[in-house]
Amino acid sequence: MNLKKLLLRRIIEIFVVFYIIMTILFLLFHLAPGDPVSMMVDLTLTPEDVALLVAQLGLDQPLWLQYLYYIKNFFTGNFGTSFHYGRPVIEIIGQRLPPTLLLFTTATVLAAVAGIWWGKLIAWYKGKPVDTGVTIFALVCNTLFLPWIALLFIWFFAFRIGWFPLSGMMTPEIWVNPAAGFLAKAGDVLHHMLLPLMTLFVVNTGAYLLIMRSSMLETLREDYILTARAKGLTERQVRNRHAAPNASLPVVTSVGLSLAFSVNGGALTETVFSWPGIGRELIFAVSNADYPLAMASFLFIALVVLVANLIVDILYAYLDPRISYE
């Protein structure tokens, strides 16, 4: 019951936050010096088409009405037409979102699970040389400049030893071949995904590992750990059953807090690997002054982050009975 209430509150919060973000973007783009029409409509089209689009998007109306149109357009999925592709923005977003979700979700889950697992193990060796070594290694991985390590990986794993494709998400020959089954296609995507995944994994895992390690060390000083030891549990049982579930809670929180940061990394990874995701699309759109596409891409990325935060919150409540049970 409490969990439901919590969920409801968080969903409302997300709506409010998203609405505020939308409003701020609107204000920035409509009040900034320059012609807002030029930002929303491709002026290289014929004057009739421009007039049509302006009317369609409500750009000829007073500001407050434009604002209402803007909100309405968002909820009806009308984001205008991409200058570059000449297609409705929503269509492009619809294509770009799934690859991003696939890569981003997999990378985040893998990094968090591995970070928790390894952080737990390394806390056993506190103060030993291996602890110092792993700590420094994790710090180094955590601060590696992501685009650079991505380039290095491409250079080594794809170019030098040729284990993985250089870029993209699928091999055209497989996808146009009607004989190729689901497994072949899935295998192909996985083959393309491994290198970007590895990049994100290397950069993101270190942080979670370090948090888990220190959280473990903190938890091991709790009284209930002493109780568990006194009960005659083996050291392994003490750590796995009593310390780790509590120690991983702060890691879950930090996964939520670092989601925004991981999205930055995700966009960079997509760009370097030409992964056809929404982060790459945003960067591409900004470079090409394709404003409708850029705006919409950003709003959807923001939405993804907010929803991912919600999922992390639910997970936390599930892991910590103090929140889910009243």
């Binding site: 973000i21 925004a260 999205v263 850029a294 950003f298 982050v305």
Partner: peptide
Amino acid sequence: MVMPSLLVILL
């Protein structure tokens, strides 16, 4: 804090 700062700055 929940906004990816790099992408906001880009936009």
